[in-house]
Design a binder for these strands. Structure first.
Length: 802
DNA sequence: ATAGGGTTAG
């Protein structure tokens, strides 16, 4: 090879031309890591030095090679110098292809436009069409195809392949549009070409209309011969529609060892959550000896990350390292990106960070993966750094950050970020809306939520399940069951999440019977309940006092649906039994549990004991709780309540002193309120306490009548039965939070309140305060750490003091 | 001188 770089001169001119042509041909067909560009430049320099005037075909070759080897400026210079006056379609074609490959579509079009009509031939047009196809400019490619018809330039299989693949980028892709193109192909007689039929299958695969699947299959069936790409495209066509088993049938019909089809099949399994199938194929692939490439590794690692098989993922990682990094850095990028996800999902966010740091050319996916890694590990500070340092952001970035704030209890920050996003002119996707609407629900910002609902309709996102489900939940959390129900009834696609959310909405608002009716309806409709469904229905039973029904649902979980109850389900069951006063049964359940009871269980026990005055077990529960979470402010309050209830005043004094030392606020006068639409009971330990007096006044404003039932035996608690005549005033919320909210009424307008740490301003408390501020026409400011929440005229604004 | 498929972040 090297010998061609230096030439002797003892040859005649035509021979020199042949030599150059041969050398350039060799260069064009040679492969390998040696610097082809350097050798091309040497040959070009040689031509210039000899003063040899090369003819068009040599010049074309030079321009083509400069283009292919990435030296576009040289290609262009030579092109302009040679073809300034007499244009040449071949050289122009090379340049167009090179420009569009480098993403310079406008320069490509410039070359195209400056080539006179007389010179334009089929190949020339094809190059420009496929440039548009590469750039996903569907309409431009089709316009050019029409242009070709007008110019009476012949179309060939390349033309149609290019047009069909460009048309696939048009969204939404109408079935009729695909059929029109199909007709044009049949008329042209080019469907004989495998590439054209493949492109047709791919086009139908991208069309969302259900009938398109059959058309794709028809094209496939009519093909006299198929190649590897045909099989791959057909598999992909089924995979995209979620027809995994049909995809598998096609895969099995093929007697191939073609790695791309395997990769397509594996990624199909991963996309549809069939992770073990994906891993099975991966194992088969390595057994049979199908080459594993970066695509395979990426899909398989994604399967491991998403199914929690972290150890398996780690061994694949080790395998990649052992196999040696024989893919180039650019090909390795998606693998490294998924490794970042794998390790951060495994809770090893620092390992993920190290991998992230080592990525040579990070792209937006790498940054987003790292961002969500930190957010999932509750490392807000690091996440904010990543978010700030990112060189670019996309829709997903904003969405991840907004819902990340939400899941870390910083919903207001999420809302602020949503506004920033809009200010920066980024168009939110339906998932962004879902996250932001959820944040509104979390802080009870009903008005804001309604505005987002309106935007959702304007943007045509009503058919998005995630957004609609978020709306349903938001309305429910903001206290508007009717709006939630309306959303549920008018949703275009109801899925199990919607059912769960609606059942929860009813349960939270005291419609226990309606909630379990809806649960039964869901089963009748053939929707498979999941563990969340059972949590929801159990808490609905608990609110409505439907103890036996709740017990039966709990038992049916494992028996009828094969869902083994988790600690959260046990907690609900114990809460249910405890509220009903069946403490002994609750205790038996605790003893039968497969795991040791955690804080949530003890809290449920304690709550039951407090209602029904089982002080010995209550004390035990409070002490357990205290041991487990000594830093939890609420525990002090609970423990002192319990000691007070059993008359152990020295212990009360001890806890009070501890609270004082640690700066924990004394509990408000009202210790427990439960308001449902069935039973309206509230329990106070000091009827003369100013907060309690406020509650009486407030209930009076609302027109709620109540009746003193008497004292709880052996305690100082007074039991009231509240008769709510106006249903719309019924509140449902966690008792302590509501108590704090009630307490706020006592304060002068605009007063600042410090809120106990365990009483973070979350959705329930928020909506209660909002509700009260509206009911009594008062402005309330709540301060929570450095943040403040300002309630006025049914609106809440949040901000930081410094 | 031009064409068709599979990968990652929620």
């Amino acid at each position: 090879m090297r010998g061609h770089d230096s030439l002797s001169f003892s040859v005649s001119l035509p021979d020199i031309a042949n030599c150059y042509a041969t050398i350039l041909h060799r260069l064009a067909t040679s492969r390998g890591p040696t610097s082809l560009l350097r050798r091309l430049r040497a040959v070009h320099a040689h031509i210039l030095a000899t003063g040899f005037k090369p003819r068009a075909h040599i010049l074309n070759r030079l321009i083509d090679l400069y283009s292919k080897f990435g030296d576009l400026p040289s290609a262009r210079r030579l092109f302009d110098a040679t073809f300034a006056h007499r244009r040449d379609a071949i050289a122009a074609t090379s340049l167009i292809t090179a420009y569009s490959a480098g993403g310079h579509l406008e320069s490509a079009r410039q070359i195209f436009d400056h080539t006179p009509l007389a010179f334009r031939d089929t190949v020339f047009y094809n190059a420009m069409i496929s440039s548009y196809s590469r750039a996903l400019e569907g309409p431009a490619a089709i316009a050019l195809y029409r242009h070709m018809l007008d110019d009476r330039v012949d179309r060939d299989s390349y033309t149609f392949t290019g047009v069909l693949s460009a048309a696939g980028a048009i969204l939404p892709l109408e079935l009729t549009h695909c059929q029109q193109l199909h007709c044009a192909v049949v008329k042209s007689g080019t469907e004989e070409a495998i590439s054209v039929s493949n492109a047709l299958i791919a086009l139908y695969a991208k069309c969302e209309a259900p009938e398109a699947a059959a058309y794709a299959r028809q094209v496939f069936n009519l093909m006299p011969e198929r190649d590897e790409l045909t099989w791959t495209t057909m598999v992909v066509s089924y995979v995209r529609r979620g027809h995994i088993s049909k995809a598998r049938q096609v895969f099995d019909e093929m007697d191939g060892r073609f790695d791309v089809v395997w990769n397509a099949m594996i990624s199909g399994y991963v996309d549809h959550g069939l992770f073990s199938e994906a891993l099975k194929m991966f194992r088969q692939m390595s057994c049979i000896g199908i080459p594993l490439d970066e695509f395979t590794y990426t899909s398989v690692l994604s399967a491991c990350a998403n199914s929690g098989l972290f150890n398996h993922g780690k061994s694949v990682h080790a395998h990649i390292i052992r196999a040696g990094p024989d893919f180039d850095p650019q090909a390795a990028l998606p693998v490294e990106n998924v490794l970042v996800t794998l390790y951060s999902k495994d809770g090893k966010v620092d390992v993920a960070r190290r991998i992230f740091n080592d990525i040579w050319m990070k792209d937006i996916v790498s940054w987003n993966a790292m961002l969500s890694g930190y957010l999932n590990s509750r490392r807000i500070h690091d996440a904010v750094h990543i978010f700030r340092d990112m060189p670019q952001k996309n829709q997903l970035t904003w969405m991840v950050m907004i819902s990340g704030y939400l899941h870390n209890g910083l919903a207001e920050e999420g809302l602020k970020l949503f506004n920033c996003m809009r200010e920066e002119g980024v168009k939110p996707c339906d998932y962004t809306y879902a996250g932001t609407i959820a944040a509104c629900g979390e802080i009870g910002a009903l008005e804001h939520g309604r505005q987002l609902h309106a935007q959702l309709i304007q943007l045509g996102y009503e058919s998005s399940n995630s957004a609609e489900n978020a709306l349903l939940t938001m309305y429910a959390k903001c206290g508007s069951v009717d709006a939630a129900h309306l959303t549920f009834l008018t949703m275009p696609n109801v899925d199990y999440v919607s059912w769960n959310a609606m059942i929860a909405a009813l349960g939270q608002h005291g419609y226990g019977v309606e909630a379990i009716d809806l649960f039964d309806q869901m089963i009748k409709d053939g929707i498979q309940p999941d563990r969340i469904s059972f949590l929801t229905v159990l808490s609905a039973c608990s609110h409505a006092g439907l103890v036996d029904e709740g017990f039966e649902y709990f038992n049916s979980m494992e028996r009828d649906y094969g869902i083994s109850p988790g600690e959260d389900h046990y907690t609900k069951l114990i809460d249910l039994l405890g509220r009903a006063g069946r403490i002994d049964e609750a205790w038996n359940v605790i003893k039968s549990m497969p795991c040791a009871p955690g804080p949530a269980i003890w809290e449920a026990v304690l709550s039951g004991c407090r209602i029904h005055g089982n002080m010995s077990l209550g004390k035990h529960a409070a002490e357990q709780l205290f041991k487990m979470i000594p830093e939890h402010d609420g525990t002090y309050v609970l423990l002192s309540n319990i000691y007070a209830a059993v008359g152990q005043w020295t212990d009360v004094a001890k806890v009070r002193k501890l609270m004082k030392d640690r700066g924990v606020k004394k509990e408000p006068g009202c210790s427990w309120i439960e308001v449902t639409n069935k039973v309206h009971v509230f329990l106070v330990n000091d009827t003369t306490h100013p907060h309690v007096q406020d509650i009486y006044k407030f209930l009076d404003i609302l027109g709620v009548k109540m009746r003193k039932l008497g004292y709880v035996p052996n305690t100082k608690f007074v039991l009231h039965d509240v008769v709510a005549e106006q249903k719309e005033y019924v509140l449902s919320t966690h008792s302590e939070k509501l108590a704090v909210a009630f307490g706020l009424l006592k304060l002068p307008a605009g007063a600042t309140v410090r809120v106990l740490k365990n009483l973070r301003i979350c959705g329930d408390c928020h909506s209660a305060i909002m509700f009260m501020s509206l009911a009594v026409g008062r402005e309330i400011v709540v301060r929570d750490g450095k943040r403040f929440h300002h309630f006025k005229n049914g609106q809440c604004s949040c901000g930081n003091y410094w």
